[in-house]
């Protein structure tokens, strides 16, 4: 089995698709970094001073002022208090939150790319995995060996999981290394707010707490990895079912993009919850960003993603081991 997995990984490496993905990252991350730096600069200009300490103190005082207002609901007060703590930490440790360092960029990057960018990268690898063997005819050499078909497919799936992990981790590492040139490489210990919960449209802050950014990053990338694995698994099924790599990729692109669109266009239509590609934004549960779709919870998201993965895997394996190779 190890030999089979090695075969698949060797092919993946030699086919250069992985390198293309790394190339895409190396080109795009500096662009995103530049965009982010521009945004921060513009924000600093609006405030009218380049001294971030002044800005921060001002923000703290603004928020303290808001706290004194009696009209504020209690849960918001707790939230503001946490925000103040976070900002005071910045001041105390001499961390400029507007030039926050590469780890903060990594965090923002994964939160933004989890529903579209990362899945697309994964699709590049996954959609090609089986269909390329079908369309090039090498499947015939692969399946006339003394190895059961399900083992051949399993080795491909395992190597796909490895490749997905590699892509997600490379995204993390490259976004760190490349954005650090602009933002600096510090900021692993920065406290990040997490633990927001939503109940009946209200934001619950009782579980909100601060955690060091490195831990948050590990978890955020872990969650995006889960989302990517679902994408990889579904693409894998498509790759088994569709002979042409191009159409497989097209199908997956359409699915992922429509998932994103549905999320924006009709968040009140409950049925879209059960479409895997509307559930990719797992990191929102960590960051506390309001969930767009009504009634979405973490167990539901995980359940939907898991169910899609299992069904896709079963379909892929059954189809692959039963099917006649006519090509």
């Amino acid at each position: 089995m190890i030999g089979l997995v090695y075969n698949e990984m060797l092919k993946m490496v030699r086919k250069k698709r992985l390198w293309v993905i790394l190339g895409i990252l190396v080109i795009l991350i500096p662009i995103f970094t530049y965009a982010q730096a521009q945004t921060l600069e513009r924000a600093a200009k609006q405030i009218g001073t380049s001294d971030w300490k002044v800005v921060l103190k001002q923000q703290i005082i603004d928020q303290q002022n808001r706290l004194t207002s009696s009209r504020l609901p209690e849960e918001w007060k707790a939230f503001i208090k946490l925000n103040i703590q976070q900002q005071e930490y910045y001041l105390k440790n001499n961390i400029d939150p507007t030039a926050p360092g590469a780890p903060t960029f990594m965090r923002k990057f994964v939160e933004e790319s989890v529903s579209l960018f990362l899945p697309l990268l994964v699709v590049i690898i996954a959609a090609d995995l089986v269909s390329s063997e079908l369309s090039s005819g090498t499947i015939k050499l692969l399946l006339t060996r003394p190895v059961r078909r399900w083992k051949v497919l399993l080795s491909k799936y395992i190597s796909l999981l490895f490749a997905t992990s590699f892509i997600v981790l490379s995204t993390a590492i490259l976004s760190y290394l490349l954005s650090g040139v602009v933002f600096g490489y510090g900021g692993w210990d920065l406290p990040v707010l997490s633990g927001f919960q939503e109940k009946n449209g209200a934001l619950l802050t009782e579980f909100v707490h601060l955690m060091p950014q490195w831990k948050y990053l590990l978890m955020a990338y872990g969650l995006s990895w889960l989302a990517c694995i679902t994408v990889a698994t579904v693409s894998f099924m498509v790759s088994v079912l569709v002979r042409s790599t191009a159409s497989g990729m097209g199908i997956m692109l359409a699915a992922i993009i429509s998932g994103n669109l549905l999320m924006q266009l009709s968040p009140t239509w409950g049925a879209i919850k059960y479409f895997a590609f509307t559930q990719l934004r797992l990191t929102d549960y960590l960051s506390g960003r309001p969930i767009l779709i009504e009634g979405m919870t973490l167990p539901l998201s995980i359940g939907v993603l898991g169910a899609w993965s299992v069904v896709a895997l079963i379909t892929a394996f059954v189809s692959f081991s039963r099917r006649d190779v006519l090509a």
Partner: peptide, 17 residues
């Protein structure tokens, strides 16, 4: 890479659940 992300995802699931 697989293990690091696996650990991360398990941590986050524990955290969130």
């Amino acid at each position: 890479s697989f293990s690091i992300l696996l650990i991360g995802s398990i941590m986050s699931l524990i955290e969130l659940f």
